[in-house]
């Protein structure tokens, strides 16, 4: 197995629930994601999917335990993880080209930024073409693009820096079904080409099954501490868009069963699920 890109050790997350009480969102999560994996995190609303992603992003710190990315703990988001959120992924005051070259420019800094302007532009256009956009689109502002095109730009913006890990938080959930299917194929293609580790948060189980090599299902644990979530690891080795329809349906049912709020971890068939 490849080296761990992300290691989550005994992580607990508590939030203030008012009147001096705390609510545990994640309870004793252990997770290891290897380099080059495509891992989807699924679960119902409020089970802690986005919290888990924010921990990996270092946007927030766990109450207990630790999160290592590339072998180190971080105090705030940095270039080690690319990020594509559901909304507001682009800077509205910059053109599409400006959005994609932004990362290259700030990384180069000062004089280099001006000297290599043409090179950055060519690189950005190459990435935009790769995500299905053309030179005319590059001159537009984000509000002039459709939701699907905006997310294509957001992906190009993140991938142009070659991040070892790409975190996507419900990145396709605001898109219509047709656009969404196109985006799913695009991200899978880019993942295969780049070998980037992708952590993909979604509430759409079918999407997770079709995209990932592995699914982490979070379920509110009725037997656990104060309603916190348990995480179940479900390997998905054969699923693909072209896979047998029945196979996908079976997998979807399995994952959905694992994310039910009443899931009692002690009663799950451990030959099918691995309790994280």
């Amino acid at each position: 197995m490849a080296a761990a890109a992300i290691r989550i050790e005994n992580v607990e997350v508590d939030y203030a629930a008012g009147r001096g009480t705390m609510r545990r969102i994640l309870n004793g999560i252990n997770l290891e994601i290897a380099s080059g994996e495509f891992v989807s995190i699924v679960g119902q609303t409020g089970c802690g999917k986005s919290t888990l992603l924010r921990l990996i992003l270092a946007e927030e710190a766990p109450t207990r335990g630790r999160v290592l990315v590339g072998g180190r703990e971080r105090s705030q988001p940095d270039r080690s993880c690319g990020y594509v959120p559901q909304r507001y992924s682009l800077f509205p005051d910059k053109t599409v080209l400006g959005n994609v070259t932004f990362g290259l420019e700030v990384t180069a800094g000062g004089f280099e930024r001006w000297r290599r302007k043409k090179e950055f532009r060519e690189e950005a256009l190459r990435y935009l073409r790769h995500t299905g956009l053309n030179e005319a689109d590059a001159q537009k502002y984000p509000h002039q693009l459709s939701g699907g095109m905006q997310q294509r730009v957001a992906i190009a913006q993140a991938l142009i820096l070659h991040p070892p890990i790409l975190l996507m938080d419900e990145a396709f959930s605001a898109l219509d079904p047709g656009t969404r299917a196109g985006m799913q194929r695009l991200i899978k293609e880019l993942w295969r080409e780049s070998g980037t580790t992708i952590v993909f948060v979604t509430h759409n189980t079918r999407e997770a099954v079709c995209l990932s090599t592995r699914i982490v299902a979070l379920a509110k644990n009725s037997t656990g501490e104060r309603g916190s979530s348990v995480a179940l690891d479900i390997p998905v080795t054969h699923a693909d868009f072209d896979s047998d329809h029945e196979e996908i349906t079976t997998l979807v049912q399995r994952v959905e069963a694992a994310t039910m709020p009443s899931t009692d971890a002690s009663k799950l068939d451990t030959s099918k699920y691995v309790l994280l």
């Binding site: 946007e59 940095d78 690319g82 990020y83 959120p85 992924s89």
Partner: peptide, 10 residues
């Protein structure tokens, strides 16, 4: 999200 995104872009 934009501030987080900017951090991830360096």
């Amino acid at each position: 999200e934009q501030i987080v995104k900017a951090f991830t872009l360096g």
